[in-house]
Amino acid sequence: MRIGILGGTFDPIHFGHIRPALEAKQQLGLDKVWLMPNHIPPHKTATSVSTQHRVEMTQLICDQYAEFKLCDIEVKRETPSYLVTTLEQITQSHPNDEFYFIMGMDSLVNLTSWYKWQSLFNLCHLVVCQRQGWNLAPDNAIADEYQIRLSSPEAIAERKSGLIIPIQVTPQAYSSTNIRQQLAQQILPTDALPNIITEYIKDKKLY
């Protein structure tokens, strides 16, 4: 199977996560996209709500969209979750599957700061969603690697890992930070959140 993985704090999960993941699945012909909440993310400060709430919200989305499946491997870990460690575990337990890690261009430009980032190419393909205001400068530390590994969605059949695949996705004007700010002011950003998430937040009195 071809499996996409979208990781994040999902604090809360919103259409800025959901719609690009659906578009990536369609463009790459993926069989499934795993939504993978972090527990202790190495690159961010503490989350606003508990891991349990973030997992439950993610599960609600997976229940609503057949394209998604919850991957809880990182929430079970009591140490910071480095992607390379996670992918090593996943590829060992799913040796016959291909994995496509979905990220934004903002993550790619900082990839060399990630733990053992070079090893990621032995474990998966990187799918890079273009984001407004973010471009890969020629002098960026990842630029040479990008040129070597650059591929199109149509040319990925021959390799199980190691490619960087840029895709165009519909821009989403949502961020978890802005959504949390609105929720703190008792504003429900219904255009950014699926109804099922809005109802969960109201019911649990989150944010």
Results as ranks from 00 to 15, higher is better:
G4Y: 06
L6I: 02
G7T: 09
G8D: 01
G16F: 05
P20H: 04
A21G: 00
A21D: 07
Q26C: 03
Q27T: 07
L28N: 00
V33F: 00
W34M: 06
W34D: 07
W34R: 05
P42S: 01
A46D: 09
T47A: 15
T47G: 08
S48M: 08
V49M: 08
S50F: 05
T51I: 15
V55W: 10
E56N: 14
C62Y: 05
F68H: 10
L70K: 06
I73T: 12
E74C: 12
V75E: 03
R77H: 14
V84I: 15
T85R: 03
T85E: 14
T85G: 12
T86N: 05
E88G: 11
E88K: 12
Q89H: 14
I90A: 01
P95G: 06
P95V: 08
E98G: 06
F99A: 07
I102L: 15
G104R: 00
V109K: 02
W114T: 08
K116D: 12
S119T: 00
F121Y: 02
N122T: 13
N122Y: 02
N122Q: 14
L123H: 00
C124H: 11
H125C: 04
C129D: 09
Q132E: 15
G133V: 03
L136K: 03
L136G: 00
P138V: 11
N140G: 01
A143Q: 11
Q147W: 10
A155F: 09
A155Q: 15
A155Y: 12
E158A: 14
E158L: 12
R159A: 14
G162R: 03
G162C: 01
I164N: 06
I167K: 07
P171M: 15
Q172N: 08
S176I: 01
N178M: 05
P189C: 11
T198P: 05
T198Y: 04
T198E: 15
E199F: 03
Y200A: 07
D203I: 05
K205C: 11
